[in-house]
Amino acid sequence: MIPHLVTVGHRRPDGRWLRLYVPVLPVLLVLSPLLLLVVLVGLVACLATRVSPVGALRGTGQLLWALPGTRIEVEQGRTAVLVSVR
């Protein structure tokens, strides 16, 4: 399952939370032309470094598929950062 929603949060010193909700699929669709370019650049990089492009693509896919459930919270005093992938 690919990630559906990425939440990035930041608590400012005044205690207010600034949260950014990123719906992955719509964002991917919007950025798909750019994504195609990134894939092409990645392919060229793989060929230049003699890395299997299929293996790299599969590895990246597996990494992306395994991301849901990741949660990182760091608090220091009144400030905090939160990254959550669902």
Partner: peptide, 9 residues
């Protein structure tokens, strides 16, 4: 800055 807390899953 006060106490710190890290929670990673």
């Amino acid at each position: 800055e006060g106490p710190g807390r890290v929670n990673i899953r």
